[in-house]
Amino acid sequence: MEYIVQTQNLSKSFGKEQAVSNLNLQIRKGEIYGFLGPNGAGKTTTIRMLLGLMKPSSGTIKIFEKNITKDRIQILAKIGSLVENPSYYPHLTAYENLEALRKILGVSKTRIDEVLEIVRLKEVAHKKVKGFSLGMKQRLGIAASLLHSPELLILDEPTNGLDPSGIIEIRNLIKRLPEEYGMTIIISSHLLSEIDQMATQVGIVSKGKLIFQDSIEAMRRFAQPKVTFKVNNGEKGWRFLLANGIKADYQNGVIFLEECSDEKVAHIVQVLVQEGISVFRVEEEKRSLEDIFLQMTMGEQGK
């Protein structure tokens, strides 16, 4: 399997504090990889190491199957990035900002107009960036990262500070890129809803550790609804169910089942009633992805 980005036991510590520990990222071509975690979980530190802005304390990073410490220049030539807060030169206009980068990247001048068009900053192209709103600066940063049509786009919290329409616009843009240009995208966020709507693959970090890495579908499976039964004698009812070959769980006086079809619910109620147990309530408890995310990261923090 060919990975565009692969890290092995990537770790970084600042003094005694372990910011990132033993991270094994695996990102395939054409994916939108959602890099998710609460603030301060080590997302930006990881991204800085991927870009060679910071040296890892230990572990290796391979991008395009090359080692970042050895072939940094070749790798970076194919990466577009936006790290943390948008970077810009306040004394230059939007157009001049891109021009300063264009000279180094050596792409044609028409690309500047193209990327400004993509992020819809054409009208303000010749205004100083100093006066831009955060959303406009963010879009300029995205424009800059697209300038040399990179194969891998690394966006750190790209929708920070954008208004709802701006978020939708950027989201649609990001979704389009892998299809139209074959780009691979790493997008970090602390908001699950954000990732949920774009990503095909998810990696969750908490306290510097990767606690989940799989497809978004796999993560959604965690979010299956749960059916709970409130009865007058929970424990007795639960034993009857087990005796009848129905796998159920019992906790705090409540019987609950995961993945429960309508027929199964009907059958369970029938069994319980037949055994003379009063059924008070049958409820479906929906767990959102947000709950799962919280549960995952909280569990890690509780340790």
């Binding site: 970076l76 790290v83 943390e84 970077s87 810009y88 030169y89 004394h91 940063g141």
Partner: peptide, 18 residues
């Protein structure tokens, strides 16, 4: 100064330059 002001360093050094 203009590199320090608003993240210019990280943008510049994430480009293919040594």
């Amino acid at each position: 100064r203009y590199e320090h002001q608003s993240g210019g360093w990280k943008q510049l050094l994430a480009l293919p330059v040594t």
